[in-house]
Design a protein around this nucleic acid. Structure first.
Lengths: 96, 96
DNA sequence: CTGGATCCGGCAGGATACTG
DNA sequence: CAGTATCCTGCCGGATCCAG
C-alpha cells in the first residue's frame, strides 16, 4: 500500500501498537535511528490518513501524545499477520 | 515488509495471483507503465525470495514463464486483506 | 520539547539502445 | 522474446540550525 510509504511508518505504527499512547520524544528514542524531522513528517502523514491521533497537552513545556485510532487498529491484525509471515520467511530463506 | 520493497512488486504479485502463469511480455503489458528493466529487476528479487518461480521454455523464440510458488501463495490472503482495507480506506478519506 | 526551514548527497527508477 | 548496459533525474531521507 502507498499509504504506508516511507522508511519508518511501519516501525512507528508497530511501536505505537505495542506501547499505546506515546509522546514525541519517546518515539524519537524508541524508533531507533530516526531523525526528528522524519518522525515529524511521517507522523503528519499518518495523521492525515486517520491512522493515528495527535493530542496537545497544555503542560509547561508543551508535550504531544500520539495514539493509534480505532480505525487504525484495523490495520493491526493485518500488520501482525504480515510480521508473522516475515518471521517464517527469514528462517526459510536462511536455510535455503 | 522490506521484501516487498520497490514500486511494482505488489502489482506484479497481484497480476500473477489474478492471472496465474504469465510470460514476460504479458506482464510488461498488463502491469501498466512498468519498464522492461524494472520488471526484470523486480522479478529477480521476487525469485530470490522464493515468491515466484521462473521457467524457461525451449521454444524457437525463447519464452519464460513466471508463476507464484506455493510458498508465495501464503501472502495471497494477507495481500487481499490489505487490498480490501485499502479500498475502504479510499472511501473513508474521500468523505473526510 | 515539538517541530519547521534549509541544504545536500545517494539511490530508486525511467528512457533508450543493444545482445542472444 | 527476454534481458542487460548505460546514462540521467527527481526526490527521499539525513544533518543541521532555528523558533514557539
Amino acid at each position: 500500500m502507498e499509504v504506508l510509504n516511507g522508511k519508518w511508518k511501519i516501525l512507528i505504527i508497530g511501536t505505537l501498537m505495542a506501547g499505546g499512547k506515546k509522546r514525541f520524544m519517546e518515539l524519537l528514542r524508541e524508533v531507533d535511528g530516526i531523525a526528528a524531522k522524519m518522525l515529524s513528517k511521517e507522523l503528519q502523514e499518518l495523521e492525515m490518513h486517520k491512522l493515528i491521533s495527535r493530542t496537545v497537552c497544555n503542560t509547561k513545556p508543551i508535550t504531544v501524545e500520539y495514539e493509534i485510532t480505532e480505525y487504525g487498529k484495523k490495520l493491526e491484525k493485518i500488520l501482525l499477520e504480515l510480521t508473522n509471515w516475515g518471521m517464517e520467511h527469514r528462517e526459510m530463506i536462511l536455510k535455503g
